[in-house]
Structures are given as structure tokens and as C-alpha cells.
Amino acid sequence: MRTLPDPQKAKPCVLVVDDDEAVAWAIAGRLGQDFRVVGLTDPAAAVRRACEEKPGVILCDIHMPGLQGDEVAFALSQEPRTARIPLIYLTALVTPEEVADLDGVFGDYPTVSKSASTQELRDLVSAALGLPDDC
């Protein structure tokens, strides 16, 4: 008898890079029905982990000890295997209503507030993955 594929592996992967493990758990709870969420608390390991997991999108905190979000984004952009993975900055710096104030501040990457609604987060991740609106 053949082994059935793991249904979790069939879901698009979202890699969450945040020094606060609770953030990754919270995002996994909010997105886990539709996506396979992998959390990473060591920003220095982001490139290696992205190469291993092959995520469809990366959510990256802006302010972290060691490496800041822009340094993680730069490192990912320099590795051919991760350079094309969409990156979305994740921040507690602003409310969902203030996110537009950050447009262009951290390069061309979109930004989402950690306090954004689950639907807003899901929509942004789906758009980055190129999924239809009804996913």
C-alpha cells in the first residue's frame, strides 16, 4: 500500500521570521487552515531556512535583534534560490490604518500590521502567492 501524501505539505508555505515565537504561533493559528506556516526566530538563519522550506511567501518582522528586516530582505535577495520569493514586512510599529504611511519606507515590499485582521492578512498572503481572491 502506498503512503498518502501529507496534506499539510500540499498547502502553500508561509515562512514567518520574527524574534518573538508567539508571533509565529499566532500567525499559524490565523493562517493554518489555508497555509503551512513555518516560524523562525533567528533572522540570521532566514536564507538557509527559506532554501530548505521553499516558501511561497515570507513574512518578516522589521525590528529584530541581530538582523533587522531590511538586512534579512537584502540577504534573501542575494541568494538566487530565495531572491524571487515575495516578502511582506510584518510590524507592530503601526496600526492597520497607518500601514499606508510606511509605503516606500522599507523599499518596495508591502507591509502589514501585526494587528491586521485575519482576513486582511490572508488576502495579502494570497495576493503575494498569486492565488485567486476566493482562497
Rank of each mutant, 00 (worst) to 15 (best):
M1R: 12
R2Q: 10
T3S: 13
D6V: 06
P7V: 10
K9F: 09
K11S: 08
P12Q: 07
V14L: 11
L15Y: 05
V16F: 10
V17N: 03
D18W: 02
D19S: 12
D20P: 05
A22R: 15
A28V: 03
G29M: 04
R30P: 00
G32W: 00
G32R: 01
F35R: 06
F35N: 08
R36K: 14
V37R: 02
L40F: 00
L40R: 01
D42R: 10
D42Y: 04
A46K: 03
R48Y: 04
R49V: 06
C51N: 11
C51H: 08
E52P: 07
E53N: 02
G56P: 00
L59D: 01
D61T: 04
I62S: 03
I62T: 00
H63E: 15
P65C: 09
P65R: 13
G66V: 14
G66H: 02
G66L: 04
L67M: 15
G69Y: 00
G69L: 02
D70G: 07
E71Q: 15
A73H: 03
A75G: 09
A75D: 15
P80V: 00
L90E: 05
T91E: 07
A92M: 11
V94D: 09
T95I: 05
T95A: 12
E97T: 09
E98H: 12
V99C: 07
A100Y: 13
D101Y: 06
D101P: 03
D103M: 05
V105A: 14
V105Q: 15
F106V: 04
G107E: 06
T111I: 14
T111W: 01
S113L: 06
S117G: 15
S117V: 07
S117M: 07
S117R: 05
T118H: 01
T118C: 08
T118M: 05
T118K: 10
T118V: 06
Q119L: 15
E120V: 13
R122G: 03
V125L: 05
V125W: 00
A127I: 04
A128M: 03
A128F: 01
A128I: 00
L129S: 04
L131S: 04
L131Q: 10
P132A: 11
C135E: 11
C135K: 12
